[in-house]
Design a binder for these strands. Structure first.
Length: 572
DNA sequence: GCCGTTTTCGGCCCGACTGTTTTCAGTCG
């Protein structure tokens, strides 16, 4: 996939144009196209071959032609042209907070700044502060931001959703405890359930802005206050170093503020221009006709006023959801409370921390109606995989517990290693004694992974393929495999692909999930839980499913027990 | 450079905060 590569080039063109003071709207067009391509679910080369580049929102004839040129020749002449007199080292300086193209353009022109070293030098020798419009305070602020920039250089610069969830929950709880606060909702990419976040946006409903801001900035989690006004405050959070933006609005504006603060940016721009064409104006305080506010209290009433079906946050990416909402054709998405059970879980029998009973009680707390136990198979010695004898012992314990909890069902499963030759880790008679088998690759990531998976998918006993690409978001790229072939085989053999909601895996990701969904493949959302707390990651997996536009019928662990058994028995 | 429920030309979302200014430009989301 060259999506990221092309997005980066378009973004650099935008930066170069900005430094040359080119047309503002042209710059924005490049930025928008770059964002759309970076987050595109499909492979851009495939789209180009189909001749449908201009179907991408924000890509017109001009940019399509440039992308085509790049894919065919490996070069983009527009990029070469605009960066001819602007070194790459200058463009990267635009990633420093509060240093925009206007300021950097002046520094380049008047002080000859070309690099980070140059920039530091002109700040330290005082020439920076002498430029008209700048000053000591700005110099100090930029210097601080340079240090922060240097710290995150080389790092991804984004945070994992599952990683920031705890921090967010803590702070939401504290905010709710403030007297005048009536509602607190995390917005932004957090609410849209993107797998990684750049920052955290929190919306508060209160009549006493000053009090909220004062309390918030004094929370012990706050490391530095970037800015703080009547309605908006930005801080850096201790530990993770993530930025948190807090916005306070009154009740009558809460719906409009939710929409504004949830984004995405492109979705908002699209919605607002739609309103504009109807003679309306939308901002974070409401929908206005002239100076009259005619809506704003809830998101639902704003959608209704614009003749739009309600658009769930996870779809708000300007990928065609607005057009569908206009026609009332949005997909019915799987819901967070549709999940009936977790089928990929580990117990003390292998490398989990809890007993089967503990997991049953946790499942009951979550109002699940069944639970699948899937400890590791015998070859997975590093994870204390189960011998045939141990598996039998576990089976007997499950029988006893099933009698004890008669309204609830525990299913017998296994996370079975797919071996080097593509075979499964137990004999047929063992596999056939189980309710279902999850196949997983845990070793030899570079050896014939595609072939091994294909062979495993042909095995009649395999039910579900675990974490199909093997990636770890922040650490490991994944197996060397042809995921398209694996998807085709899964479809052919009617096998189920797992959406593994372990916070660092999130595998399949939303793009592959959407591709597989288009093929008519079914999924199972699991948390791969090794302890009770990990059960709470289920929402991450449902978030991926929703972002990939999946309906509940594509997710087998939303089925009632009987339907689930029908499916996996037929399958296994 | 993109785009169309007044348009294939002439628009392009909207507002908060800060610092350097005496009314606003730059940056951000």
């Amino acid at each position: 996939m060259k999506n990221r590569e092309i997005a980066e080039i378009l973004s650099e063109i935008a930066k170069a144009l900005a430094l040359s003071n080119d047309n503002f709207f042209k710059i924005r067009a490049y930025e928008r196209a770059a964002r759309a391509i970076k987050d595109l679910p499909e492979d851009i080369e495939k789209i180009c071959k189909e001749g449908s580049l201009t179907d991408i929102p924000g890509v017109g004839e001009g940019i399509a032609k440039k992308i085509k040129e790049y894919l065919e020749t490996g070069k983009m002449s527009k990029y070469e042209e605009v960066t001819k007199d602007i070194p790459h080292s200058l463009l990267t300086l635009l990633d420093i907070r509060d240093l925009g193209s206007k300021t950097l353009g002046v520094l380049h022109k008047e002080l000859g700044v070309l690099s980070l070293e140059d920039l530091k030098k002109v700040i330290e020798d005082g020439t920076f502060a002498k430029i008209e419009g700048l000053g000591e305070k700005t110099a100090e602020k930029i210097l601080y931001n340079i240090r922060e920039y240097e710290k995150r250089m080389g790092k991804q610069g984004r945070f994992l959703l599952g990683e920031v969830m705890l921090t967010v929950n803590e702070i939401v709880k504290k905010l709710k405890n403030i007297d005048s606060v009536t509602r607190v909702i995390p917005c932004g990419s957090y609410r849209r359930m993107k797998e990684t976040l750049g920052d955290i946006d929190i919306l508060v409903e209160s009549k006493d802005n000053k009090k909220v801001m004062k309390k918030f900035t004094s929370f012990q989690e706050v490391k530095k206050v970037l800015e703080s006004g009547e309605t908006k405050t930005s801080v850096i959070i201790e530990g993770q170093g993530i930025q948190m933006d807090l916005r306070v609005v009154p009740e009558e504006s809460y719906g409009a503020a939710l929409m504004y603060f949830t984004g995405s940016k492109d979705h908002n721009v699209h919605i607002r221009s739609l309103a504009q064409r109807r003679g309306l104006k939308i901002n974070e305080y409401g929908v206005f006709r002239g100076s009259m506010r005619i809506a704003g209290k809830t998101e639902e009433e704003i959608h209704k006023l614009l003749h739009l079906q309600f658009i769930p946050p996870e779809l708000r990416e300007d990928r065609g959801e607005i057009e569908l909402a206009m026609k009332g054709n949005l997909p019915q998405l799987v819901n967070y409370n549709d999940i009936e059970g977790n089928l990929h879980t580990h117990t003390k029998y292998s490398d989990g921390e809890n007993t089967i009973r503990d997991l049953v009680l946790k499942s009951l707390e979550l109002e699940y109606s069944y639970l699948g136990i899937s400890d590791h198979s015998k070859t997975a010695s590093y994870a204390n995989g189960l011998s045939v004898t141990e598996l039998k012992k576990q089976s007997e314990e499950i029988d006893r517990l099933n009698e004890e909890f008669n309204e609830f069902t525990i299913l017998k499963g296994i996370e079975c290693d797919i071996l080097l030759d593509g075979s499964l880790d137990y004999d047929e008679d063992v596999l056939s004694s189980l309710d279902y088998v999850i196949g997983a690759i845990h070793s030899h990531f570079k050896k014939n992974v595609t072939l091994r998976m294909e062979k495993a998918l042909e095995n009649p006993y395999l039910t579900i393929l675990a974490h199909p690409t093997g990636r770890l978001i922040s650490k490991r790229k994944g197996y060397e495999l042809d995921i398209e072939r694996v998807m085709d085989k899964a479809k052919e053999r009617e096998k189920i692909l797992e959406i593994n909601a372990y916070y660092d895996r999130l595998d399949l990701d939303e793009h592959n999930t959407r591709e597989a969904y288009k093929r008519g493949i079914k999924f199972c959302i699991n948390t791969d839980a090794h302890n009770l707390r990990m059960f709470d990651w289920m929402d991450l997996g449902v978030g991926i499913a929703r972002r990939a536009w999946l309906g509940a019928s594509a997710v087998i662990n939303t089925y009632k027990l009987k339907d689930l058994l029908d499916l996996i028995k037929r399958n296994g």
